[in-house]
Computed example of a mutant assay.
Amino acid sequence: MSSLTTEGMIELVTNVGFPAALSLILLKYILFTTEGMIELVTNVGFPAALSLILLKYILFTLSRRLEELDRSVKQLSLSLEEMEAKQLKQSEQPSPANTDKLRAE
């Protein structure tokens, strides 16, 4: 994948599928140098290059946020389990006020 021509991209997409081809292209240009950006724009055109750059940014940002969300959900799950355990423990112990009412009736 030294240079990306239209025929090369078509062959790549045909051989590995569009998502994999897009991933390979992004991996090639993971470190966007000035030369890399010029080559990307030259090979695929400005709109496609901009789309790839934006896609890389969105995927990076989304993965970071998903990791944060995963941590938050795990912490929430642990907190809920602790609350349920406390409630269960409290419901198993009869309160003195309730036993007095039952005896009076």
Rank of each mutant, 00 (worst) to 15 (best):
L50P: 09
A49C: 10
L59N: 10
A48C: 11
M37L: 14
K56G: 03
L69A: 01
Y57Q: 08
L69Q: 06
L66Q: 12
R64H: 06
L66R: 12
T42H: 08
L59W: 07
I58D: 14
L40E: 14
L54R: 09
P47G: 02
L69M: 00
L52H: 06
P47M: 05
T61Y: 04
L52R: 01
T42R: 04
R64M: 00
T61D: 11
Y57H: 08
A48E: 13
A48G: 11
F46Q: 15
S51A: 00
Y57F: 01
E35P: 04
I38R: 15
N43H: 09
E68S: 08
P47K: 08
A49S: 14
L62S: 14
E67M: 04
V44E: 01
A49N: 12
L55C: 07
L59F: 03
I58C: 09
P47D: 10
L69R: 08
I53Q: 02
E35W: 01
S63R: 00
F60S: 03
S63W: 02
A48P: 03
M37P: 07
E68N: 07
I58W: 11
L50R: 14
T42S: 09
E39S: 01
S51W: 01
S51L: 02
A48V: 05
S51M: 03
L59G: 06
L50A: 14
I38M: 15
I53R: 11
L52V: 05
S63Y: 04
L50Q: 14
G45P: 07
I53A: 04
F60A: 00
S63M: 05
L55M: 01
L62V: 11
E35R: 10
E68R: 06
N43G: 13
L69P: 02
K56P: 00
P47F: 03
L54Y: 06
A48M: 06
V44R: 03
G45S: 07
P47L: 00
E68C: 06
L66P: 04
A49V: 10
R65H: 00
R64F: 01
I53D: 05
M37Q: 15
V41I: 15
E68K: 02
Y57W: 03
L52T: 08
L62D: 14
E35S: 11
S51N: 05
V44L: 01
S63V: 00
G45N: 02
I58N: 14
A49R: 11
I58P: 10
R65F: 00
R64A: 01
A49K: 11
E39N: 05
T61H: 01
I38D: 15
E39R: 09
I53S: 10
L55E: 12
Y57E: 10
R65E: 10
G45Y: 05
M37R: 15
T61M: 09
T42F: 00
K56S: 12
T61C: 06
V41H: 13
I38P: 13
G36N: 12
E39Q: 06
L40H: 13
R64I: 00
I53K: 12
F60H: 06
E68M: 03
F60K: 02
F46C: 13
L62M: 12
L69F: 05
E67L: 03
E68H: 08
L55N: 03
I53M: 08
